[in-house]
């Protein structure tokens, strides 16, 4: 947070200087950026936060040893969370549900939407494996009552069952439900819920920081032309269009 504050203050000062649309040369910009001091420990904390939140246990362990940065949670608990995530991502939803309940039985009880999505993913896996009769039986027993209680659940259920109307499911309008991205989406949802139940922030700080950078740049665009970062992956300063 202190790092964020430094960046925000610096940008505010730059903004104050620009009474009208002002051209800032690359040399001027780079000098201003070099005046911003970011402590190495803050950087290390950010990286560790990302690795821990996203569940990269081995990387976090190695990073801890090399940098001396301590994670703010017990790495052992990450292993359990990652086991759940891996189970969902590989389509083992039943196993994932068991693991979640082992961790904390209240997570699914207090989060009906998450539970519905896990059951939905389970239905998707049954359909993917061509077990039509079993899929319909499962949907009728477990998901239909949920759909009766909640209109948005019902609509999601309709979309999922609609997969069965097509012989060639990969080419049908609701085919994206069978994508790996659907598994990842459900896995992320589970991960976030577990983190919340463990009183940890469910999103890593680094993406939030980058979002704020982009937002600040957008605001600054209204008042000045300067070398801006367009590609976050390379973080290259690009000369302003004059």
């Amino acid at each position: 947070m202190s790092l964020l504050w430094l960046v925000i203050r610096q940008l505010a000062e730059i903004e104050a200087m620009a009474a009208s649309k002002k051209l800032i040369t690359r040399e001027e910009w780079e000098k201003k950026l070099s005046d911003v001091k970011i402590r190495k420990e803050d950087m290390n904390k950010l990286v560790m936060n990302f690795l821990v939140t996203e569940g990269y246990v081995e990387a976090a362990e190695k990073f801890r040893m090399e940098s001396g940065t301590e994670p703010d949670i017990d790495l052992a608990t990450i292993t359990d969370r990652m086991a759940v995530k891996k189970a969902v991502q590989s389509g083992n939803v039943e196993d994932a549900i068991e693991k979640v309940n082992d961790l904390n039985p209240e997570i699914l009880d207090t989060n009906p939407q998450l539970f519905f999505h896990l059951q939905q993913q389970r239905l998707i896996e049954l359909i993917r494996n061509g077990k039509v009769e079993e899929a319909l039986e499962f949907a009728q027993e477990e998901l239909a009552p949920r759909g009766e209680e909640n209109q948005s659940f019902l609509e999601e259920l309709e979309r999922t069952v609609a997969l069965l109307a097509f012989e060639d499911v990969s080419n049908c309008p609701v085919g994206e439900l069978l994508d790996i991205s659907q598994r990842l989406k459900t896995a992320s949802e589970v991960n976030a819920a577990i983190l919340t139940s463990q009183s940890h922030e469910k999103d890593p700080k680094l993406p939030s920081l980058l979002k704020m950078l982009l937002c600040a740049q957008n605001q600054l665009d209204e008042k000045a032309a300067y070398p801006r970062v367009n590609d976050l992956s390379t973080a290259t300063l690009e000369d302003p269009a004059v």
């Binding site: 239909a144 759909g147 259920l157 309709e158 609609a162 069965l164 309008p173």
Partner: peptide, 18 residues
């Protein structure tokens, strides 16, 4: 499917209440 997917989704939802 391409033109009336919403209708088809609802009809398929009916399957669960056969």
């Amino acid at each position: 499917a391409t033109s009336h997917m919403t209708d088809i989704q609802k009809l398929m939802g009916c399957l669960l209440w056969t």
